[in-house]
Computed example of a mutant assay.
Amino acid sequence: MAYVVTESCIKCKYTDCVDVCPVDCFREGPNFLVIDPDECIDCTLCVAECPVEAIYAEDDVPADQQHFIQINAELSQHRNWKPIVEKKDPLPDHDQWANVKGKTQYLDRNE
């Protein structure tokens, strides 16, 4: 079972989670992070680090966020989504987006 980044990360992209990942399983897109399910070792360290509570165990992903399991799997393999291993500043307008629901349409897949 892998961990999954869900909708709350979109347009925020806090990277606190990246700093604690022992296997560097995070991949970075323009306005979202994903976890490579083939690299994740289920250590749970990233969950507590996310200030917007965007990371869930695959079995615990809320019903309305289930599509993010597939999104993480797909985008973690996308050629433009590179590994991220060091913390960066969140997106400039992260505060405005942190509590917004229904952000899936804003996910920039960079395809």
Rank of each mutant, 00 (worst) to 15 (best):
K87D: 00
T104G: 00
Y3V: 02
V61Y: 08
F68M: 11
A54Q: 11
A63L: 08
V5A: 03
E28H: 01
V4D: 04
D19C: 05
L107T: 07
G102F: 10
E28N: 06
E28I: 04
V4L: 06
S8N: 14
Q65D: 02
K13I: 01
P90W: 10
A48Y: 08
V52D: 07
A63W: 00
D19W: 02
L75D: 01
Q105P: 00
P90V: 13
K87H: 00
C9L: 08
V47M: 14
E53C: 09
H94T: 03
D64G: 01
C21I: 07
G102W: 12
T104R: 09
D60K: 13
C25K: 00
N72H: 04
C21S: 09
E53N: 15
K88I: 13
V20L: 10
K87T: 05
T15C: 06
N31E: 09
P92S: 10
V52N: 09
A63M: 07
V61M: 06
V34I: 08
Y14F: 15
I84R: 06
D89I: 01
Y56I: 09
G102Q: 12
T15D: 01
P22F: 03
L91E: 10
A48H: 05
G102Y: 11
H67K: 13
I69R: 13
D108L: 11
A57Y: 11
A98V: 08
T15M: 07
D89H: 09
D24I: 02
L91H: 09
V20C: 10
K82M: 13
E53H: 14
Y56W: 15
I71G: 01
K13H: 01
P30M: 05
I55G: 04
P62N: 11
E39L: 15
V100R: 14
H78V: 01
H94W: 15
E7T: 09
L33V: 06
G102L: 12
E28T: 04
E49A: 12
E58D: 12
D36A: 09
K11F: 01
D108Q: 13
E86N: 11
T44S: 12
N80L: 14
D59L: 06
H94D: 10
T104W: 02
N110V: 09
Y3A: 03
W81G: 02
C21K: 04
D93P: 00
I41C: 07
A98L: 10
V20Y: 08
V85D: 09
P83D: 03
R27V: 01
V52T: 12
D16Q: 13
K11I: 06
V34T: 15
F68G: 03
Q96L: 12
L45D: 12
D19V: 06
Q66S: 04
Y14P: 00
P92G: 07
D59H: 11
I55S: 02
P51R: 08
Y56F: 15
E28S: 10
I35V: 15
D36F: 10
V52Y: 05
C17Q: 13
K88G: 01
S76N: 08
L91K: 05
I84H: 04
A73Q: 12
P83Y: 00
L91A: 03
E111I: 11
T6R: 07
E53Y: 14
V85M: 07
M1V: 10
I10P: 02
K13W: 00
K82W: 03
D89W: 06
